[in-house]
Simulated assay, not measured.
Amino acid sequence: MDSVTPPSAVALHPVIVPLSYLLGTWRGQGEGGYPTINSFAYGEELHFSSNPGKPVIAYTQKTWKLNSGEPMHAESGYWRPKPDGTIEVVIAQSTGLVEVQKGNL
């Protein structure tokens, strides 16, 4: 990502602090491609936010075609870090696909 807008100062829940560097809005450009289609340029924006004192980070992501501004992909969800060093990430995509991922920080 090329740029980030930092969040305003809020009282973060202790489990959020290790991931606080993510908070804010990140924007950039990229190029995608698959064997069956031509390469394409796209813009992307990610937004991470946290409500004061809550042990969760809200997440949204969207992409668009750079040449036309037409929307491409979007998803949203929550990152849920746990006191034991694990994390759960729940994401819903605009296509109806839902992901639940679990891992370690």
Rank of each mutant, 00 (worst) to 15 (best):
S8C: 09
K65R: 06
V100N: 05
P81E: 04
Q101M: 02
A92R: 06
F40D: 02
P14M: 00
S68Y: 00
L12A: 09
V17I: 15
M72D: 05
A9R: 11
G85M: 14
R27A: 12
S76H: 13
L46Y: 00
E44F: 02
P35R: 13
K82N: 07
N67A: 14
Q93T: 13
I16A: 07
I91A: 07
P35Q: 05
F48L: 03
V98C: 07
A41Y: 03
K54L: 06
Y59P: 03
F40Y: 15
V15T: 14
I37F: 02
E45K: 05
F40E: 07
Q61V: 01
P6N: 14
A41F: 07
G85A: 10
I87C: 12
V56P: 00
K82Y: 07
S76C: 14
E99V: 11
D84W: 13
T25Q: 15
D84P: 01
Y21W: 15
S39C: 10
P55F: 09
Y42R: 03
K65G: 07
L19C: 09
A9S: 15
S50K: 02
F40S: 08
H13T: 10
A92Y: 01
Q61P: 00
S39E: 14
V90N: 08
V15N: 06
G53W: 04
P52V: 03
P6K: 05
L23Y: 05
A41P: 01
I37H: 10
A92T: 01
P18G: 11
D2V: 01
G30D: 02
G77S: 06
N38S: 13
W79V: 03
G24M: 11
A11R: 10
G28H: 02
S76N: 13
L23I: 12
V100F: 05
H13E: 09
G24I: 06
I87N: 12
F48Y: 12
P55G: 05
D84S: 10
K102H: 09
H73Y: 11
Y42Q: 03
G43P: 08
T36R: 14
L46C: 03
S94I: 09
A92I: 04
S94V: 08
F40V: 14
M1D: 06
D84E: 15
K102D: 07
A9D: 12
G30A: 10
E31H: 05
M72T: 03
E31S: 07
A41Q: 08
H13N: 10
G77K: 13
G85F: 15
T60N: 05
S76F: 11
L105K: 09
A41C: 06
P81L: 02
P18A: 11
